[in-house]
């Protein structure tokens, strides 16, 4: 039965196994409208931004020609920029664990079909639909030194509330609290979706094995949603690196630049001072930082996977 399989020339059908129908250039029309938007509004500006970052281009002073790495060199010597990088990384470091931890905590507590859980889920998710402007408006009133909600509550106990908006060390944590309050809904929902994927039989087996609640959490639940934990962490790192609106509206980067993030630096350099080349260079650095942080996290996630 083993006929010697002689090498025969075959027409190599290089086609996508999931595609339906024939390979024809006409099918490219399906992606044409999107590709047009993608190329004109994303690829071109991305390339233009990279080019700009090597130019001396100031809207007020005019175009001064290519300058090589000068914009980057200036950025590395710019105390305000370096401060904004430090602020952004610090903000990511304090907010991401809060998102992951609190999101997971809420999801674990609200992972059932009861009316009570659904009610609490609506509350914690509800604030996510508000725009940043409304959220900051609300929280500026909460943080307001003399008549804010926080001071009202502290006053009841004869205390003075910490001033998040005017204390350097508290400005970023204050913004982090607002941010968690605003968009804790997303990580919570992602964790809930993952928890619902865990088969019920696993818990029943654990119950038969007399596993304690803590043991079930550590040995069954957390390992089962490990991928989601990494995913949420990556998503939150990417989102929180883009901090802008809250800082711009609550503290305006202050006090003494203590809460100015990179995006706000880009905004000010590009759209207040109109130093386009300089702002573009700062954008590239932000892009690289975000990519690096996300890749580092995925790498860490994978290490744990293998180990």
């Amino acid at each position: 039965m083993s006929a010697p399989s002689q090498a025969r020339p075959v027409r190599v059908a290089r086609r996508d196994a999931d595609a339906v129908g024939r390979r024809t250039a006409w099918n490219a029309l399906f992606i044409a409208p999107y590709m047009l938007a993608f190329l004109v509004l994303l690829v071109v500006p991305l390339g233009l931004g990279m080019w700009l970052s090597f130019q001396d281009y100031d809207m007020l002073a005019g175009y001064g020609g290519p300058v090589g790495w000068e914009n980057y060199e200036r950025l590395l010597g710019d105390r305000i920029f370096l401060g904004s990088v430090r602020n952004t990384i610090w903000f990511v470091i304090i907010s991401v664990p809060a998102f992951v931890g609190l999101g997971l905590f809420l999801a674990l507590l609200l992972n059932d079909d009861s009316r009570k859980s659904s009610f609490f889920r609506s509350i914690f998710f509800g604030s996510s639909v508000l725009s940043v402007t409304i959220v900051t408006l609300v929280w500026r009133l909460v943080y307001m030194p003399d008549r804010g909600l926080l001071q009202n509550i502290a006053g009841m106990f004869g205390l003075t509330a910490p001033n998040f908006m005017t204390t350097e060390a508290l400005a970023l944590p204050g913004i982090a609290i607002v941010t968690v309050w605003w968009i804790i809904g997303l990580p919570m929902m992602l964790f809930l979706a993952a928890l619902q994927q865990i088969p019920k039989e696993v818990y029943e087996a654990a119950a038969l094995d007399n596993a304690s609640r803590w043991r079930v959490l550590v040995s069954i639940t957390l390992p089962a949603i490990r991928r989601t934990i990494v995913l949420v962490a990556v998503i939150e790192v990417i989102l929180q690196f883009q901090l802008f609106g809250q800082a711009n509206l609550i503290t305006n980067g202050g006090p003494n630049n203590a809460s100015r993030p990179i995006v706000m630096f880009i905004y000010e350099a590009g759209f207040r001072d109109w130093m386009l080349g300089y702002a573009a260079a700062a954008s590239q650095i932000l892009f690289v930082l975000m990519l690096g942080a996300a890749m580092l996290q995925m790498w860490i996630g994978r290490q744990k996977d293998g180990g």
Partner: peptide, 9 residues
């Protein structure tokens, strides 16, 4: 690609 990387150009 984040929005901020292309907003200036």
């Amino acid at each position: 690609v984040p929005e901020q990387a292309i907003i200036v150009p």
